Simulated assay, not measured.
Amino acid sequence: MPVRSPLYLLERFDPGVVQLDSELRVIAMNSLARRLLPVEDKQPFEKVVLSFHPERSVAKVKFLLDQAECPVSNPPPMTMIINIPERVLLIKVTKLSDLRGDTTGYTLIFYDITDQVSDKEPALAMTPASLTAENPPPAKRQLHKIPTVSQNRIVLVDVEAVTYIRSEGHYTWVSTAQGSSFCNLNISDLAERLDGASFFRIHRSYLANLDFAEQILRDEGKVSLKLRGEPTALPVARTSVAGLLEQLGIGEADTMRN
């Protein structure tokens, strides 16, 4: 992907805008927000904004709104996956006040950066009744860049450079040879959107890039995976051992040989 300046991105991208009142009810949105968000399905107007988002995104939106209440904080944009359709959005929220400084509402602004971080065409919406063996669900857009946060900037990390991803609640830390970066996407979202030939969920808290696999360690019945360039081995869940070995193309017997 060619490097683009922040000014280029600001000029090229139309922002989506959602207006909330002081009770966090949706009162207005612009045409881009109407196109990208599931307005027809959920009819968000006059509803609290948290009820409008997918369940796994609610905690992130609540965090955004809480940050907007802090007068001294300057949180970086949040990165979220909206499931219908599959999009990656950079989202920022700001509080609006009247002449006395009382809160009158909030404005939620987002940019759709899906094309900048993924490499497949968006999936067409399909109803459950239309999903059959002959007509399976469309593949999700695969990420080739992972959006991470660094000092109020969004840094796009090349997927090939990632050694592993560690879960921390609703968020993750993305590790490369240069260190770890905070990511607003959760580990399940990333596991579904990264190349399954390279990335494998070895543990509920760890997603490993097997291109960096160097050693499989066994110690008192516990299994861990050593990745090239990482000083510490990662734990492998007992239920993931067989899948890990299969993904690496080796068998259980191979790991027991002296």
Rank of each mutant, 00 (worst) to 15 (best):
163 T>C: 12
182 F>N: 04
172 T>P: 11
240 S>G: 12
199 F>K: 07
161 A>F: 06
249 G>E: 10
181 S>I: 07
186 N>E: 05
182 F>Q: 04
189 D>T: 09
215 Q>M: 12
212 F>S: 02
187 I>K: 02
177 A>H: 12
205 S>Q: 13
186 N>H: 10
220 E>Y: 01
230 E>C: 12
163 T>F: 01
187 I>M: 07
160 E>H: 10
209 N>K: 00
201 R>Q: 07
196 G>W: 03
186 N>A: 08
177 A>M: 15
201 R>V: 00
181 S>L: 14
159 V>I: 09
168 E>G: 07
157 V>P: 01
181 S>H: 12
218 R>G: 09
236 V>M: 06
184 N>G: 15
164 Y>F: 14
253 A>H: 09
192 E>M: 13
244 L>C: 08
160 E>K: 14
205 S>G: 13
229 G>W: 05
224 S>F: 09
186 N>Q: 12
210 L>P: 10
208 A>M: 06
213 A>Q: 11
241 V>N: 01
221 G>A: 08
221 G>T: 10
170 H>G: 05
207 L>Y: 02
211 D>P: 02
180 S>C: 01
211 D>H: 14
199 F>W: 02
167 S>F: 03
214 E>W: 10
216 I>T: 03
233 A>S: 15
203 H>D: 08
168 E>N: 08
178 Q>P: 00
194 L>T: 10
240 S>K: 15
220 E>Q: 08
205 S>R: 11
229 G>D: 03
177 A>C: 10
210 L>D: 09
178 Q>K: 12
159 V>M: 01
189 D>G: 07
211 D>K: 12
233 A>G: 04
250 I>S: 11
160 E>Y: 03
190 L>H: 02
